[in-house]
Design a binder for these strands. Structure first.
Lengths: 233, 233
DNA sequence: AATTGTGAATTCCTTCACAGCC
DNA sequence: GGCTGTGAAGGAATTCACAATT
């Protein structure tokens, strides 16, 4: 186990590996090689071994990795062995969809609060039964509910102010859906999910198709682990 | 203008620059330097000049870039001078939210069709008036409506099949929200938006806060250009 | 025989630093 | 003087390739 800094590219991939391991475990598969994993993701097998080797020697030469054991390690590395309490700020279409979203690990992440500015929304309840609270109450509720991660789903013009407020309240991790580049205080991690950037970048590739090939594509973002129940997500 | 391959990191940044230029133009600002732009995004100014120089010499030494002109160039480079017709497959919470989403450039991207498998949904209309069509009709409608970009918002287990079908119908650009790594055919560009990966990666940073600093964070994804109307997105 | 863990090589991306131009 | 465009340098991420291990 080394003490180098781990890149975000690596942590993103660890999450992808974990999802795959969960599937393998469900399927009753006991061991897996870096080569087999690599084929699933169009990655190089050495990449996977390197990613894992940052955190320890989890493999067995000549055998591969024990699925159950590696899965447990990855959960621990990613901090998914404890429940992370999250809240959504901005209960528009997107905020509501996120609130109802089933695609993320419900054991690891628990949605405990919804916030909005709009007086007509405050006090009403979303489909999942959570009351929509005034953003005035962010500091109080973040503390009382021990919220660790905030999802920002407000319009661009309001996003920086939300970030500042939740930072004030001690939040260190933010997932920002507003189409704006935020300026976080040191020690605060902001990840961005920007639909416009994704679409516009796709548009570029339509105009310049020559550049394209089959490449790995988890440098960017989202994913699920287990098979869902047949409903659209 | 060179003929090198352009990395996706660059195209993502171009999209971010474009949004900023639109704001600057609205604000009546006529020129901007790479230094000023760089400060907006926590980027190095040489990065911005390099990104732009792949496509031409748009700047004026001693002056900077003409906002209006550079904006027009970027729109053209990103292929946003023509309307891109898009469709959503999977009309669950997320698909519906995407359909109602106001955050992306409505001039450049026009949503023209919704698809779902669920018999109870087929034939009904979403809030925006679009009828939900059977996924059986994907090839026919993609052709008739000249759809160029597909947003996949189905559960993980169904996503690869959707990708295969739309690929068959000639689609070259896909934005995938299903939490699974897809396997595209050569020449087909898939971008991923994976909520689980984002959240789990944030969880990692909660466990290992030492690693964090103020860094540029558009390596990943989404954004808006102009100020919205005060509603949550 | 198969597969890991890892130094070395390579490729890719970013930043520096400065000549050239306005 | 200020700012671009870019070659060169530096740094980061990926891939190679092989010794080590079961």
């Amino acid at each position: 186990m080394k003490t180098e800094k781990i890149s975000e590219l690596t942590t993103n991939r660890l999450s992808v590996y974990l999802r795959c391991l969960s599937e393998l475990e469900s399927a009753g598969i006991e061991t897996v090689s870096s080569q087999t994993l690599a084929e699933q993701f169009n990655l190089n097998s050495a990449q996977i071994r390197k990613d894992l080797a940052y955190f320890g020697e989890f493999g067995v030469r000549g055998v591969g990795y024990y699925v159950k054991e590696l899965r447990r390690h990855l959960q621990q590395i990613l901090g998914l062995n404890v429940e992370r309490r999250i809240a959504i700020v901005g209960v528009g279409n997107l905020g509501l969809a996120l609130a109802k979203y089933q695609g993320f690990n419900r054991d690891a992440f628990r949605l405990v609060a919804l916030f909005d500015d709009e007086p007509s929304k405050i006090g009403t309840r979303a489909a999942n039964g959570l009351e929509i609270l005034s953003t005035e109450r962010l500091p109080e509720v973040i503390e009382r509910e021990t919220i660790e991660i905030i999802l920002i789903a407000v319009p661009a013009f309001a996003a920086q102010q939300v970030l500042d407020r939740v930072t004030e309240a001690g939040i260190k991790a933010v997932l920002n859906f507003a189409p704006i580049v935020l300026n976080p205080k040191p020690g605060v991690k902001v990840k961005n999910v920007d639909l416009s950037v994704s679409l516009e970048s796709l548009s570029y590739f339509l105009v310049h198709p020559s550049e394209e090939a089959v490449t790995a594509n988890h440098l960017d973002l989202f994913r699920i682990a287990s098979v869902e129940n047949g409903q659209a997500i």
